Amino acid sequence: MWWLIAAVGLGIPLVVTAMPEFGMFAVGAVASAVTAALGGGTVIQFLVFAVVSVALVAVVRPLANRHRTQSPGLASGVDALKGKTATVLERVDEGGGRIKLGGEVWSARAFDGEQVYEPGQKVDVVEIEGATAVVI
């Protein structure tokens, strides 16, 4: 019974502080409660609590940190336009021009100042600067 009270007690800071480690310790307390219900002695209960809690922290925490630091796999907005192919509508050079990108007409300029793209040519979008696509 004391282990279940401890599990609830550890669950409260988990909810209040959003620190997942408290949840892992609460799971260790539940595992110890199950051990006690099966007739395990006090030493075994504390060992189960320690082993389960440490194992969860050692395994789950690195996975959660890796997941938290990963960038999203789905690009949206102007980030989704980078790498897309467009069609030149008006001559594009370092001074500007127009392209058709994703069904819309965009202002564009050449990434390389010496490069010139003529109407009908296919270009790739390198980046978006404001409302202008930089192409190669």
Results as ranks from 00 to 15, higher is better:
residue 92 V to P: 10
residue 32 S to Y: 03
residue 88 V to I: 14
residue 112 D to F: 02
residue 62 P to R: 10
residue 120 G to H: 01
residue 68 R to D: 07
residue 68 R to G: 00
residue 91 R to W: 00
residue 102 G to E: 10
residue 92 V to A: 09
residue 39 G to T: 07
residue 119 P to L: 01
residue 93 D to A: 03
residue 114 E to M: 01
residue 44 I to K: 08
residue 88 V to Q: 14
residue 41 G to N: 14
residue 34 V to M: 02
residue 119 P to G: 02
residue 92 V to F: 13
residue 85 T to W: 08
residue 58 A to M: 13
residue 99 I to S: 02
residue 115 Q to P: 00
residue 61 R to P: 02
residue 99 I to L: 03
residue 108 A to N: 03
residue 91 R to K: 13
residue 113 G to V: 01
residue 118 E to D: 07
residue 36 A to I: 04
residue 102 G to A: 07
residue 117 Y to N: 01
residue 100 K to T: 05
residue 99 I to C: 02
residue 89 L to Q: 11
residue 37 A to V: 04
residue 47 L to E: 03
residue 75 A to P: 02
residue 112 D to W: 00
residue 35 T to D: 11
residue 88 V to K: 14
residue 39 G to V: 07
residue 31 A to Q: 05
residue 104 E to V: 03
residue 84 K to H: 12
residue 87 T to F: 12
residue 66 R to P: 05
residue 45 Q to H: 12
residue 109 R to Q: 06
residue 85 T to P: 01
residue 116 V to Q: 02
residue 55 A to R: 04
residue 50 A to K: 07
residue 60 V to L: 14
residue 48 V to N: 03
residue 46 F to S: 04
residue 81 L to M: 09
residue 45 Q to K: 11
residue 61 R to W: 13
residue 39 G to F: 05
residue 97 G to Y: 11
residue 108 A to R: 03
residue 121 Q to L: 01
